[in-house]
């Protein structure tokens, strides 16, 4: 599963959309960065410039990390998530798609029990992490393993450096020194594609960054603590094509080590990075399967309409 080496994806010419290439990164390859000039030329074909080593294989293994068993979430009387069962495996990327308000964020927030902070929220069903019921686990321990990027960028009112170092400093009993932290912070900022913009002044207040920079800073912050499962809620919603490409590359790179769930409104992005896709509609998980199946041969009428773009 998910070892889709096929680079050329589906025939989309009838809808007038240029063909999309999947990013396939060989696990052994060093990280590749886009050069400014390369990407500036043709924004629509950006994805193609990332297809490196086309015959390379994505990790050939997957391992089940989280299992959601008939999860339901209600806010007062409003059902936000209804009877959803889904699996999150390391070695692959699960994309959640669906119209606004269909419960994607709520599902994501259930995976690290953050939804429990909302006083009106009532959760039912079970969520397992490595075969253990998360309700029996300590919240903090769960969240150390399951990291999350929020839909709205939420950098702390501190410097850029302190933001990225925050998790490492505050979650252990011993606070690591600046020397130990520095390489990790720099690496996280690089992977999040923001290093070049902030490298000259890491003591700059994070809140004075632009929206897109804040979003990437938050990505760096969640990468720095090296979660085992990473939940990304629309990580590229405010980003330009170049930054988006860097983030997607990081995602593909990371999936060989960790499990990733990404919520996105960008279907092309889902096709580029995901192995599994879940389509949600009004709280229901309408369709769930491999990326090829959901995009090429959707079973439900709703999914068909949504992926073709004739959705009301």
């Amino acid at each position: 599963m998910g070892i889709e080496s096929a680079d050329e994806v589906h025939d989309r010419t009838e809808s007038g959309i240029p063909p999309i290439k999947r990013i396939v990164v060989n696990g052994e390859m060093p990280p590749v960065r886009v050069s400014q000039g390369e990407a500036n030329g043709a924004p629509t074909h950006i994805a193609e410039s990332f297809v490196i080593d086309q015959g390379a294989m994505a990790p050939a293994w997957t391992e089940e990390r989280m299992k959601v068993e008939s999860l339901g979430v209600r806010f007062d009387r409003k059902e936000a998530v209804k009877d959803v069962s889904i699996e999150v495996n390391s070695g692959e990327v699960l994309a959640l798609i669906g119209p606004s308000g269909c419960g994607k964020t709520t599902l994501l927030r259930s995976l690290n029990k953050l939804v429990d902070l909302t006083p009106t929220a009532v959760r039912s069903g079970r969520i397992m992490l490595d075969g253990q019921d998360t309700d029996l686990m300590d919240d903090t321990l769960l969240r150390k393993k399951v990291g999350m990027l929020f839909q709205q960028p939420n950098p702390f009112p501190m410097s850029i450096f302190d933001n990225v170092a925050y998790g490492l400093r505050e979650r252990g009993t011993k606070r690591p020194g600046k020397k130990e932290l520095e390489p990790i912070v720099v690496d996280a900022l690089e992977r999040a594609g923001i290093w070049a913009e902030v490298s000259d002044n890491l003591s700059h207040p994070a809140l004075s960054l632009s929206g897109g920079q804040q979003q990437r800073l938050c990505i760096a912050r969640s990468l720095a603590v090296r979660p085992e499962v990473l939940l990304l809620d629309e990580p590229c919603s405010a980003l330009d094509p170049i930054s988006t490409a860097i983030i997607e590359e990081t995602i593909v790179e990371l999936k060989s080590e960790i499990a990733i769930v990404i919520v996105t409104h960008n279907l092309q992005q889902a096709e580029r990075v995901a192995d599994q896709v879940g389509f949600m509609y009004l709280g229901d998980l309408v369709e769930y399967g491999s990326v090829e199946q959901v995009f090429n041969a959707p079973m439900a009428e709703r999914t068909k309409d949504y992926v073709r773009g004739d959705f009301g």
Binding site: N112, L114, R143, M148, N154
Partner: peptide, 10 residues
């Protein structure tokens, strides 16, 4: 802000 900190396992 607080959610951000909690989500990092603090």
């Amino acid at each position: 802000w607080r959610e951000g900190a909690l989500a990092l396992g603090v």
